[in-house]
Computed example of a mutant assay.
Amino acid sequence: MSAPLGVYPRKPSAMAELFASEKTLIGAVHLPPLPGSPSYRGQSVAELSRFAVEEAATYVSNGFDSVIVENHWDLPFLKPGEHGYEVAAAMGVITAAVVAELGSRVGVSVLSNAGTCSVAAAWSAGAGWVRVNQWANAYVANEGFIEGQAARTTRYRHEIGADPVKVFADVHVKHGAHAIVADRTLAEQTEDAEFFDADVLIATGSRTGHATSVEEVVGIRDHTQLPVIIGSGIDPGNVAALLAECDGAIVASSAKENGRWWGRADAGKVRAVARAAGK
């Protein structure tokens, strides 16, 4: 039976489908520059795949539940729709190597905000989900004017038969002005992302590595039926308090050897976050 008018039908929890753990920790695998990037230096995709598998192993062998694979060194980032075939191909092959070790609970994020490219890579690799930073509405970022990708991505996902791939969508996206005009509250943006068929919502700080406030997490959680996770700023000092208010977190900078997103994952720092989270 269809839901009453004005009420979103409740989805099965994508977090429960993908992960065995109730409070999920996801490590970010930030890949070196890929083919097509200005900083690419000719490494084979096999070599890049080995890097990704090593990073993933550091996370999961020290208490994390899974990882998300990101082309974070493909700077400056392209806008959605501008990524070449080489990006989807490289991300698919590299992610498939990680999936071979961890299974379908692995995620994919092609920056910036490339929903269709992420879905193509995830589906070809057997990964279970993608992260899309701007799912509904629009904002101004370093890349320029960025529009929500929900309509294009959901249609493309269905067209290639990739409906099982879940979408983790940021609500208050980092690295940009949060609205073109200040007329959309956090509650309204949360409801927009759910209405546009996201599966999991993400709360973040203002930049990579910046802490997400408890108020931001609660403000999203209280206006959605979907699972909510944190997308930036988790460290051993705040992970327990923040996880108490949501379903999980994506962790990067605090788990890196140099405390920055561009470092290698450090076993001791990964373990410190996991222990603080009660893993």
Score class of each variant (00 low, 15 high):
152 R>G: 00
265 A>T: 09
246 C>P: 04
145 F>K: 02
261 W>F: 12
200 V>Q: 13
136 A>Y: 01
157 R>H: 05
110 V>R: 01
173 V>C: 12
101 E>G: 01
13 S>I: 01
61 S>G: 00
49 S>K: 14
157 R>D: 03
174 K>E: 06
251 V>Q: 03
103 G>T: 11
263 G>I: 04
174 K>M: 13
9 P>V: 13
96 A>S: 15
158 H>M: 04
123 W>Y: 15
263 G>C: 08
259 G>V: 04
274 A>K: 12
37 S>R: 06
162 A>T: 05
161 G>S: 09
253 S>R: 12
187 A>D: 02
244 A>Q: 11
107 G>A: 08
37 S>W: 02
212 T>P: 11
188 E>N: 05
17 E>K: 13
168 F>N: 03
97 A>V: 00
189 Q>K: 15
127 A>R: 08
214 V>H: 08
158 H>V: 00
126 G>I: 06
127 A>I: 07
78 L>D: 07
161 G>L: 10
249 A>C: 05
213 S>Q: 10
190 T>I: 10
209 G>C: 03
145 F>G: 01
81 G>Y: 11
180 I>M: 15
82 E>V: 01
143 E>M: 10
67 V>T: 10
148 G>Y: 00
115 G>Q: 10
75 L>R: 15
148 G>Q: 03
13 S>A: 02
41 R>K: 14
115 G>D: 07
20 A>D: 13
186 L>H: 01
88 A>G: 10
109 S>M: 10
165 V>G: 11
88 A>N: 06
25 L>Q: 11
76 P>R: 05
83 H>W: 14
178 H>Y: 12
236 P>W: 13
57 A>Y: 00
90 A>F: 06
8 Y>C: 12
271 R>G: 02
244 A>E: 15
